[in-house]
């Protein structure tokens, strides 16, 4: 199966197989009016199989925190005139703002409307994020 290369846009490679749709949803790519290709279960020497997303849009500001949180192994390539001009490696973000909601019913975020949902990374090894208000983990 062959998908054409993009001239100007972003390629998200090395997505853990099966996570492409989550990335698509959480990055709100359905709101874009450009072409977006979702490739699932692509053969990979390194990963066995992987997912890939191609976004055919120039000047698109990607939320790297969302990506890093969902799958820190993703490689982000910025494409200009058919060439890769930049590769970004992701890390687990130290802070998540309005990416996840606190599920603790006793947390102030469950009743206060204007409040931003903020989580902080407290254990990098085990990927533990805690709500800054109630300290419940995600």
């Amino acid at each position: 199966m062959k998908i054409d290369s993009i001239q100007n846009g972003i390629v998200l490679d090395h997505i853990t197989a099966g996570k492409a749709l989550q990335v698509y949803r959480d990055l709100k790519l359905d709101k874009l009016d450009c072409s977006v290709a979702i490739l699932q279960n692509v053969k990979s020497n390194k990963m066995g199989k992987k997912d890939i997303l191609k976004i055919d849009k120039d000047e698109y500001n990607l939320n790297l925190d969302v990506l890093g949180y969902i799958d820190p192994g993703i490689t982000v390539s910025i494409i200009k005139d058919g060439e890769t001009v930049e590769k970004k490696k992701l890390e687990l973000p130290e802070k998540l703002v309005n990416i996840k909601k606190c599920k603790n019913p006793r947390c102030i975020t469950s009743t206060e409307q204007e409040i931003p949902h903020i989580f902080k990374l407290t254990d990098k090894e085990n990927r533990v994020y805690r709500c800054v208000y109630c300290e419940a983990d995600k």
Partner: peptide, 28 residues
């Protein structure tokens, strides 16, 4: 809301001690 209560009381007092049943309310 807690936010509005705090903003209003801040007009009248120099310091606030707050107890609330919801976790994280004083932080907010």
């Amino acid at each position: 809301s807690v936010g509005d209560t705090i903003r209003v009381v801040g007009c009248y007092a120099d310091i606030i001690a707050m107890r609330h049943p919801k976790e994280g309310a004083p932080m907010f």
